[in-house]
Structures are given as C-alpha cells and as structure tokens.
Amino acid sequence: MGPILVVAEFTEGELSDTSRELLTKARELAQSLGSEVIAVGFGSHAEHAMANADADRAVAITGLGLDQYLPLTYERTLSQIVSEYHPLLTMVANSTMGLDLGAGVAAAQHMPVIAYCNGLHTDAEDIVAQCQAFAGKLLAEVAVPAGGAVITVLPGSFGSSGTSGHPEVTVMAVDSVPGMDVVKILEPEKGDVDITRADILVSVGRGIGDPENLGLAQELAEAIGGVVSCSRPVVDAGWLPKARQVGKSGQTVKPKLYLALGISGAPEHLQGMKDADLIIAANTDESSSIMEVAHYGTTVDILDLMPALAERLRGE
C-alpha cells in the first residue's frame, strides 16, 4: 500500500491551519490502512516548518526562487515526487495552489482526481470521499479507486488534532523550470475596500440605530479580520459609502462569513448575500426574514453583541 502524501502550505513560515488539518486526516487514514504519511513542502522555510509535523517523513523542496509560489515548477516537481513515491492518496488543499497542482498532477500522472472533498473515511473495503458539488447544493460520495487518487480538500473540513511528530526530513534541491515566472507580487489595492473580495463581512442594517455605533462594527471587523458592509438604508442615511452596500442595487457578495447585524432581510438585500458560505444573523426580531436564510441566528441586541464578540476575538 502506497503512502499518503500531503502537500503542505505555510503561513508566515509555519504550517498553515489547513495543512495541519490535512495531516491529521492523513494520519487517521494511514493508521487504519497501515500506511505512512509523507509531507511535502516547498521553499526554504519548509524544512523548519515541517520539522514537527504529524508525518512519518517529510520532503522539503528548496531551490532558487522557490520561496515564491511558481505554478509550473511546483507542478513538475510534485509530479516527479508522485511518480517516485507512488502514493495511494495525494492530498492538497483546495487553494489556488491546490487548484493548480491537484488536477494538473493527476492528469500528468494518469491518476484520477477527487475535488472539493470535505470528508474522508474508510468503510468496509474502500476509502470514501465526500465532495461538495453544485455550489454546495449536493454532496457526492466517491469511492477512492484502489489505484489511488489525488484529492483536493476544502479548507475547514476536518479540524486538526494539534498532534506533532518527528518526521525524517529529506531536503531536495531543484532548479526552477523555465517558462513561467513571477514578475512581481501585487500589494492589495488601497482605497475604499472592495466588499466583493472580502472573506468576512460584518454587515450592518438600520438596527445599528445611530452612526456613532458604526465604530463598534468597525472594531468587530478588525477583530475578526473582515470588512464592514451594510444594507441600503445605511447608505441612504449617508453613514457609509455606496460601495459598501450589499443587495440588488448594490454589490452581490459571497463571503465565507456574513454577519448580518440588525438587518431585516428584505428580498433586495437577500439577493446580494444569500449565497454566502455561512450566514450568522443578529436581529431582535426572531421572525425577521433574515432568519430564513441565516444558518445561525440570535435575538440579542447587536449593540451588546458586537463588543462582546470583538472582545472575545481579540482575547484569543
């Protein structure tokens, strides 16, 4: 039985949360299959970052220019590793890098790829993956072929155990593959925020009551790493610029988290945000329409909730 390969990613020189999750899952599967876990990471910090990873072995790939993500070089290298180690599973996060490497490496290696996986378990004979399809409207149960597969995993699917290990780290030096290179890193644009690009929106409606309370929303947004958006009446009142308006006559957003604070959920508003991955609504009126699209709801006063939440998030 081949090993389980996990492609690690790093944030600020450490294993990313998602990579930890993947390793935890890989460990669990490896145990039940009697296999081993190999972590693969790119860049000069990989060796250090994977030193305590919950893996049996680790391959740190280094080389000139590899600290920066290079699609072509990474893919060719990973392809080579896959062909060398014959892993049963190659797990990558469904990040930009995962979107590049997953299907690309699978096709090059004549393996199948299973994408948008958010669950993995073993049953009587097989490893079974659960995948999200059709924008989350359906789930699919996919049997991992006996010959193995590449799996791209949605971040936040598994949770990590926090266990660390002592993998034997091999450093592998490679040259970057000519043909595609990074010209420059682009800093996030300044100027008013683009709410359509934010992963987290702290959205306020007329329930905010007074423009002075916007400070609370802003503090919460900073604590949670999000951006403040709003419903139309808040823009009408001149409390926030038009660019922050969500809805039919404003922006259509699809963030990972939409906090609807004091928003009633008029159809024109819902039209702009109902496809958010997670909607949490706070509205003193439990019968307000926002509760019909929200995943979680609460009836506490937002003026109490915002500072309480911000404090907790900051305190973490």
Binding site: R206, R232, P233, D236, A266, E268
Partner: peptide
C-alpha cells in the same frame, strides 16, 4: 408596493 414601502422606510 415594493418601491414606496422602501421609500417610506428610507
């Protein structure tokens, strides 16, 4: 109904 309800509110 939709337009003016919103207008009364705004």
């Amino acid at each position: 109904v939709a337009m003016f309800t919103a207008a009364v509110a705004s």
